[in-house]
Simulated scan of single mutants.
Amino acid sequence: MQDYRILITRPEPENTLSRERLGALGWNTVPLPMLEIAPIQDADQLAAIRAQVFDINEFDYVIFVSKNAARIACDWLDMCWPMLPSGVQWIGIGQGTTSTLQSEGVPALSNPGHTTETLLAWLAPAKMRHSKVLIVRGMGGRPELGEKLEERGAKVSYLSLYQRKKPDYVAQTFFMLPDIQLIWVTSGESLIHLSSYVEQHKPEWKVLPILTPSIRVNQQAKQMGWINAYCAHGADDNSLIKATEYLTGK
């Protein structure tokens, strides 16, 4: 597998962490983040975030949609809550997000799966009725989770902590890359950005095997012309590594 290279499209710092994990297992990796995570800087927005975090004890459930949401939220919790409020159920979507929270001292639980869809299946509808739910995410995140919870009778609020941006790459970036044999993509938004660049600069990549985190994103990849899209059933390293080993027979 010496000449086998995996393109990692996670945003930083997760990109570096995944590459370190794969390197320890003997895999060669190439970084090409397809999302940039930018913390909010606007003074008025920061003041609104601070106010929401101070009121976080009013919620029955606080749901974190990503490791970035968890990491940035923990910084805010440290500033506003020397001791975490009691009576709040902290939930991470996926084991990676939950582990990030737990490493910061937040006693979070994780749904058995790794996606919004499996979280909705896991949460008991009866318990959600009249519950106050805070969804911690990036600006402009997917609305499905909140909409489904509201259908169950929950009162949903959002705490948006960062912006997601498309990285700015030039043609030379792609011409200088080594040959790639496999691609990891960990969100639908990353897939959209990657596909846009590939159509411009690397159309031959559309035949490469590409691992996606969920059935939804896998279907999206196939619709966008990725011939060999496979579902890893999770955006965490363990799920993607297991799928990589299956595909390569390693």
Rank of each mutant, 00 (worst) to 15 (best):
G113Y: 01
L134I: 01
Q95K: 14
F59S: 08
P85T: 09
K242F: 09
V170M: 06
V217E: 07
K148I: 01
I241R: 13
D55T: 09
T100V: 14
I192N: 08
V65I: 14
A124F: 00
S131C: 09
D237L: 15
T97N: 11
L145T: 05
R21V: 04
Q45G: 01
E204R: 11
L32A: 05
K202N: 06
M79N: 04
D42P: 02
A48S: 11
Q95S: 15
L17H: 14
D42K: 11
A43M: 08
L194K: 03
N28C: 11
E144P: 04
I135E: 03
K67H: 03
W184H: 05
A24E: 14
T9C: 02
E199Q: 14
N57I: 06
L240A: 10
A232P: 12
V106I: 14
P213V: 07
T186W: 01
G140R: 02
G188S: 08
G153L: 02
A24T: 13
Q163F: 05
P203T: 05
G105Y: 07
D75F: 00
K155F: 06
R137A: 01
A121H: 11
Y230Q: 15
A171W: 04
G249A: 13
A126T: 09
N228R: 10
V53G: 01
L194Q: 06
M139S: 06
M79I: 00
G249E: 04
G153S: 02
H114V: 02
L134D: 02
L182D: 07
K242E: 15
K202G: 01
S195K: 04
L46E: 07
G105R: 06
S103P: 14
S157V: 00
R137C: 08
K242V: 08
L35Q: 08
L194R: 02
T115W: 00
G113E: 10
R19G: 00
I37Y: 07
I6S: 11
P209D: 07
A232W: 12
A24Y: 14
A47D: 01
D55R: 12
Q95N: 15
Q95I: 14
Q200S: 09
A243F: 14
L208R: 09
T173E: 09
P209E: 06
T212C: 13
T212Y: 04
A126R: 10
T97P: 08
M34Y: 12
G234I: 03
L7R: 12
G26T: 10
T244S: 15
G234D: 03
W184A: 03
D3M: 08
E14K: 15
S187D: 04
L149R: 00
S214F: 00
D168W: 02
I93Q: 02
A232Y: 10
D179M: 09
K127L: 14
V133Y: 00
Y61S: 05
Y230G: 10
L145P: 07
G23V: 13
